[in-house]
């Protein structure tokens, strides 16, 4: 019971500190903006730890953060192998192939109004479908190893990327296109000098959406069959063995990989579209 009381107290203290910070005079400063969510996160982890210990929650329901941390540091070789298999081989290669294919398709479609009119609704429709469902088919076609996961990722990222790129290539205003016309610019001149740069914010939006989709695709596809390595494989077998600390360790890896991947794309975006109002801040 003492632990539970501690948990309640910790929550109170965390919230009080954050309230003071958020409503204090420096709430606009960068340090406070970083500190408040961090304090909140640490408070949640602390409360979680205390409650799990205080209430003797069994491991098969919810492991304590410290247990997860221990499991994480003990299993780094396994986690690394899973990371390489699922993220680097499956997700990343599928992401690259899918995004490049969608980009090239978008350029091809862009030249024909008729194609664009036809493909855009079909593409937006496909982007809303539960495409992870193609995983069993693609596993059947490409085998258990990472190739089938990459294929799932290709299919998943293709349509969001296509729709965003096509929309982006339409982004240049009529006036800007008229200007190119007055210079008697060729199709490719106006493509590279005007429409491609103007499309960049949209393209990066597609690239960012696709980072998360690629991880989802690679992990879920492993639920349908995989070699004995990989994050999805590890999650489903560890769940079966009720070693939830391992499942949580994999989820930590997935979270780190997801944020890092997204963060990298966002950083490149910042460098490329520095001129866009949303980046100028």
């Amino acid at each position: 019971m003492v632990m539970v009381a501690f948990a309640v107290a910790l929550w109170g203290v965390g919230w009080w500190v954050n309230t003071r910070l958020a409503e204090g005079p420096n709430s606009g400063s960068r340090a406070v903006q970083l500190a408040v969510p961090l304090i909140f996160g640490l408070t949640v982890i602390g409360v979680w730890e205390l409650l799990v210990r205080g209430l003797d929650v069994p491991l098969v329901i919810l492991p304590a953060p410290s247990t997860i941390a221990v499991r994480f540091s003990d299993s780094i070789p396994i986690l690394w192998a899973d990371f390489v298999q699922t993220i680097l081989k499956g997700a990343l290669s599928g992401y690259l192939i899918g995004c490049i294919a969608a980009f090239l398709t978008a350029i091809a479609v862009d030249r024909s109004d008729f194609l664009r009119m036809g493909l855009l609704p079909v593409g937006s429709f496909a982007a809303a479908l539960p495409i992870v469902g193609t995983a069993p088919i693609l596993v059947m076609w490409f085998g258990f190893d990472w190739e089938s996961k990459a294929a799932v990722v290709v299919v998943m990222v293709f349509f969001p990327m296509l729709v965003n790129t096509v929309a982006g290539l339409r982004e240049a205003t009529a006036m800007q296109r008229d200007l190119m016309e007055t210079y008697a610019a060729s199709y490719w001149q106006s493509f590279f000098k005007l429409r491609l740069p103007a499309a960049m914010p949209f393209i990066f939006n597609g690239l960012k959406i696709s980072t998360t989709l690629s991880l989802i695709g690679a992990i879920v596809a492993e639920f349908f069959g995989s070699p004995t390595v990989g994050m999805g494989f590890r999650i489903s077998t560890s769940v079966g063995q009720l070693s939830l600390d391992m499942v949580w360790a994999e989820i930590v890896v997935a979270a780190l990989a997801g944020t890092a991947f997204y963060g990298m794309v966002a950083m490149i975006e910042k460098a490329v579209t520095f001129w866009h109002p949303s980046q100028r801040g």
């Binding site: 329901i61 991880l215 992990i219 489903s236 769940v239 079966g240 997935a254």
Partner: peptide
Amino acid sequence: QTIPIIALAPMIIVVLYS
């Protein structure tokens, strides 16, 4: 939004089952 939180799904099913 950047995390494949769907990876939690199998665990939720099993924990709730237990």
